[in-house]
Computed example of a mutant assay.
Amino acid sequence: MTALQVKHTQLSLAECLADLAVEVLIDEADLSPKPGLVDRRGNGAHDDLHLGLMHSSALSLWPAFKEMAEAACEHGEVNQALRETLGRIGREGEVEMLRVTGGVNTHRGAIWALGLLCAAAALDDQALDAGQVTLRAARIAMLDDRALPVTTESHGQQVCRTFGLPGAREQAQLGFPAIIQHGLPQLLRSRSERAGEQNARLDALLAIMSQLTDTCVLYRAGLSGLDCMQGGARAVIEAGGCVSLEGRRLLRDLDNDMLRLRASPGGAADLLAATLFLDRLAPALHAPIGSV
């Protein structure tokens, strides 16, 4: 028997969801040119990140995403026990991520967003419309994690409190409006206009950036930096997106502004990955990788 004749074992639902979560994180990292973010060109506004580290980080999270989906299958409904199980798995996944990256926070926000979406998808794999999945994710996010350790505030929590603006927690509790109202519609619109897949993904990122109160940018550059990000992203979209010559010029200007401010829209990048997850979810589960 040759290797080509060996049949693959059918993947479980949890394994398919974990595969998809890691896949979209890698695709988000590779997408170029992203303003201020790590991509194939370089490290963006970061001194401690590079593309290889982003890939390693994404791969390290596969077990956590699988366990979150399995937990949702086991609990079978949104309840307090599921919320606290997901919180524990997420914290364990973060520890492993930091071990792999040598202490660098690469995907903390993505663990939250994609972990919720993996669990929400696993709760009902027959209701995979983006709106249905994000509604279930919101119901999970509305529950408090009573086992959450009392620790120093994260950077995102600090700026949310300082500026009185919503962050990643509120985005999830509202059903990810940055994705449902902006990122996903722009992705589909740009595809329908034949912008090309890479341009469509960049346009989706910019649509998210144009609206999101990105705490990564707020922490590094304050309200003026946030205004710069949102206005610059909006200008690219209004100029016809990344497929247009003027849009590309404005994208370059936005990239230069983010580099000058040392501000990287990491929150928007996490939500782009989540956008790609929701976009591919139904097809991925209907024809899972590794199936016979």
Rank of each mutant, 00 (worst) to 15 (best):
E92C: 07
A14G: 01
T2D: 15
V104H: 05
W62N: 11
I237Q: 09
H182E: 09
R191P: 14
P185V: 08
L17M: 08
S154W: 06
G109I: 04
R194C: 07
A122W: 13
V243T: 08
G44H: 03
H75G: 00
K66Q: 14
A200L: 09
Q157M: 08
G240S: 08
S57M: 07
L31C: 13
L212C: 11
L218T: 02
F65E: 06
A21C: 11
P288Q: 10
H8W: 05
T275L: 13
L218G: 02
I289C: 12
R88I: 06
R220E: 09
Q80G: 03
T275M: 13
G247H: 13
L205V: 11
L212A: 04
L86P: 11
L276N: 05
A263I: 01
R220C: 09
E23S: 11
Q198Y: 06
S56T: 00
S154K: 02
A168R: 08
G102N: 04
R191D: 08
I111N: 01
M97F: 05
G76C: 05
G42W: 13
R41P: 02
H8N: 10
C73T: 12
L123A: 04
I180T: 04
A81W: 11
R252A: 15
R249K: 15
L13V: 12
R161I: 03
E94G: 00
Q181W: 08
V150C: 06
L218S: 04
G240I: 13
D129H: 14
E92F: 09
I180G: 05
Y219M: 00
G167S: 12
A69V: 00
Y219V: 00
A113E: 09
R161M: 02
E238C: 05
D253N: 04
S264V: 03
H8I: 01
S244C: 10
I89Q: 04
P283R: 04
L143W: 11
R83D: 01
R262F: 02
G225C: 09
R161L: 12
A178F: 12
